[in-house]
Amino acid sequence: MKEKTKSLNLRSGGAKTVKSAPRRRQCGTMAVHQRLLEQYPSFRQNLVDIERLVARRMLSGMAARAGGPTTIPIVVHVVFNSTAEDISDAQIKSQIVVLNKDYRAKNPDKNKTPTVWRGLVTDVNIQFALASKDPNGKPTTGITRTHTTHTSFSDDNAVKSAATGGADPWPSDKFLNIWVCTFERTPQGQLLGYAQFPGGPPKTDGVVILNTAFGTKGTATAPFNRGRTTTHEIGHWLNLHHIWGDTAHCEGTDFVDDTPNQQLPNFGKPHFPHITCSNGPNGDMFMNYMDYVDDDSMFMFTAGQVARMTATLDGPRSTIGT
């Protein structure tokens, strides 16, 4: 939902919004994000430019990339210490199957979308394939395997470089790089994945996924064994924000008009409706891929989210895919 507004009618095209006073002071999350952006001035400017482009596209209703669907080549970098972490080709391919259902709105569980939002479920018109040619034009499986002495990685991008125990990316203007590894365990738990938004440094562009949350087979473990962590992270890679707006109050935004205003992330398997930020009667759209619920409880992108992703594909990620 757009910043400092609350939705009274959440259907696409019919949103009516009102200004609302802050209920709480802003938490530190976005402030820290701003500081991170300030460390990388070009990243910050790129994000500003991207937001302008997205806004222009949404106003003009410009057509998506001609034809379609767009096929994005993926390279999966498996970075392993133990043999169990060296996940199978079958597990990797099961993840590609999930992506090709979720990004084409062909996932059978979309039928569990509450009736009021079924009209918003939208095909992103993107499909994914393991790369068939490497950066030198030679045949490839689209999978690299790297043994590392590291037993786990944090979220500091070390897994994205051979010099720091990981695997170097393939050119990120041509390939979507996905690193699969084990994350460190901390008191807050173990990360399932992290992403990089468009406009960031090319050498770290892509997404990183925990090996037990990747695909639907092998080491994939419930409740994160339906491949939705990768669906979520690629959403960020295509410029989507968390549906709760990355604050702990009702003033955050996901820069999308057809998603309800929402206070906090939802977890587990929520029951409909879950009302926050005066967003009744339908409440949070917790079944959206950009919330934090279990894999079996998320199953939709909205038209507004697809517009952002399409604009991103036509703009900052225009060199990738065919």
């Binding site: 938490c27 530190g28 999350t29 976005m30 820290v32 994000h33 991170l36 979220d155 008191p187 807050q188 738990g189 173990q190 990360l191 399932l192 994945g193 992290y194 992403a195 990089q196 938004f197 473990t221 409740p223 994160f224 962590t229 979520h232 992270e233 960020h236 924000h241 968390h242 990355d246 992330p265 977890f267 934090y292």
Partner: peptide, 26 residues
Amino acid sequence: PSRGRISFDLKPDGSLAESGIAPDDR
């Protein structure tokens, strides 16, 4: 297991270390 957990470390000397969820899931 969870996609993320916020936390805050309340030190006896009054200092604070907060951990939140970043927009990119870090």
